[in-house]
């Protein structure tokens, strides 16, 4: 027998995702990321407080900037909260808090998880979405997010030294590559949903139409909040439609 330290009793073929996704250690890691950002915020605010008087900036203006930023982010934050709750069933609370609420974005993280599941021959959220698939999906999301942070850590000091950025040297390539990459990724991930079932096909259309309508209304009515909430609203409409189609079928 090979001695192995097993701290959490996982079952690779179990589809009880929440049993593994909400283990205390994952909660501990998630709260760790929260704590790190809180500490960063305090350190930054303190550094700004020290520097401000030297650039003729009264403490009142620092406070005002803090408050303006806080107020401006209430709407977008609640919009993220709404989308995050919709994904709790898929990833459990700690993973949603870290991956979707903080470091990443809903689209990139869910995309990574989906790609990882497919690479194991499984479907995210499907009947073959086991604890093992969840774990590999979380690994893929986390490594992808880590690469984003790593390149920020490496590139920021380089760009600060004033090295001419690629953006300045070749604006055409710099604009085209990320645009094509993003559109390619989300087109592929969206269209891959179509052949799964007729309900999937309808829901992609419902969700796309809801988003189109929200963005159109936001533009016509000059409602910025609607643009922020568009993703949450579209998911809510599509999921509700999915529930009725599923129970009717």
């Amino acid at each position: 027998m090979q001695p192995q330290l097993i701290l959490a009793a996982g079952d690779p073929s179990s589809t009880d995702i929440w049993a593994i996704a909400n283990t205390p250690f994952l909660w501990f890691c998630a709260l760790g990321v929260f704590a790190v950002i809180f500490i960063q915020t305090i350190l930054y605010a303190r550094a700004a407080k020290v520097a401000a008087p030297h650039v003729n900036m009264p403490a009142r203006e620092l406070k005002e900037s803090f408050r303006a930023g806080a107020v401006a982010s209430i709407g977008p934050s609640l919009a993220v909260v709404f989308v995050a709750i919709a994904l709790l069933a898929l990833f459990g609370t700690p993973a949603v808090l870290v991956r979707i609420g903080l470091i990443g974005s809903v689209s990139a993280e869910t995309g990574s998880a989906n790609i990882a599941a497919v690479s194991m021959g499984a479907t995210l959220g499907g009947a073959d979405y086991t604890q093992q698939v969840f774990a590999v999906a979380l690994v893929a999301m986390s490594l992808s997010g880590a690469m984003w942070m790593l390149s920020t850590l490496i590139l920021t000091p380089i760009m600060k030294k004033g090295g001419k950025s690629l953006a300045k040297r070749n604006p055409a390539v710099m604009a085209l590559i990320p645009t094509a990459a993003l559109l390619g990724a989300f087109s592929a991930l969206t269209i891959a949903e179509l052949p799964k079932s007729s309900i999937h096909m309808i829901l992609v259309a419902v969700s796309a139409a809801a988003m189109g309508l929200c963005l159109l209304l936001a533009k016509v009515l000059h409602a910025k909040w609607l643009k922020e909430w568009a993703l949450g609203i579209s998911i809510a409409i599509a999921i509700t439609a999915g529930y009725f189609l599923h129970t009717a079928a």
Binding site: A89, G125, E193, I199, L203, V204, A208, S234, A238, G242
Partner: peptide
């Protein structure tokens, strides 16, 4: 159904 509901949008 979360994936199709999310990806379309």
């Amino acid at each position: 159904y979360i994936l199709p509901s999310l990806m379309g949008a």
